[in-house]
Amino acid sequence: MGWKRDREEIRQLMAARPDPEGKHGNESQEAQAVNAELDRKLRAQPVWRRGRFLYDD
């Protein structure tokens, strides 16, 4: 059940990003920390699962 917990944590991190679209160039410490954690969690997933998180509607 680890991947289900990871999936939920990734969704929460994606929702918590201060600048989700990256259009405003938000480089605050909070944004960097959230993006670093999100990147770490996504890299731990298989490639096909990463694509579903990034490109799923």
Rank of each mutant, 00 (worst) to 15 (best):
Arg7Asp: 15
Pro46Arg: 15
Tyr55Gln: 11
Lys41His: 10
Glu21Tyr: 10
Gly22Ala: 03
Leu13Trp: 10
Ala33Tyr: 02
Gln45Thr: 04
Ala31Asp: 03
Leu13Ile: 09
Asp6Lys: 13
Arg52Gly: 05
Phe53His: 15
Asp57His: 04
Tyr55Val: 11
Asp39Arg: 10
Gly2Val: 14
Glu9Gly: 00
Gln45Leu: 15
Arg52Pro: 00
Ala16Trp: 03
Glu27Cys: 08
Leu42Asp: 11
Gln32Asp: 02
Leu13Asp: 09
Pro18Gln: 06
His24Glu: 14
Arg49Gly: 00
Lys41Ile: 03
Pro46Ser: 12
Ala33Arg: 14
Leu13Gln: 06
Leu42Asn: 12
Glu21His: 09
Gly51Val: 14
Arg49Glu: 15
Arg7Leu: 09
Glu30Arg: 14
Asp6Arg: 07
Glu30Thr: 10
Gln29Tyr: 02
Arg40Gln: 15
Lys41Val: 05
Gly2Leu: 12
Pro46Met: 11
Glu8Ser: 07
Gly2Trp: 02
Glu27Pro: 00
Leu54Lys: 09
Ser28Tyr: 06
His24Ala: 14
Asp56Asn: 12
Gln29Leu: 07
Gly25Ile: 08
Glu9Tyr: 01
Arg7Cys: 08
Gly51Thr: 08
Trp48Pro: 01
Arg40Tyr: 10
Ala36Leu: 13
Glu37Ala: 14
Ala15Phe: 00
Gly22Thr: 02
Asp57Trp: 03
Arg11Ala: 07
Glu27Phe: 07
Asn35Ser: 14
Leu54Gly: 06
Ala33Asn: 09
Pro20Ile: 04
Gln29Asn: 04
Gln45Cys: 10
Pro46Thr: 12
His24Thr: 11
Pro20Asp: 08
Asn26Arg: 03
Ala36Ile: 03
Asp19Thr: 03
Val34Ser: 05
Val47Glu: 15
Gln32Lys: 13
Val34Arg: 03
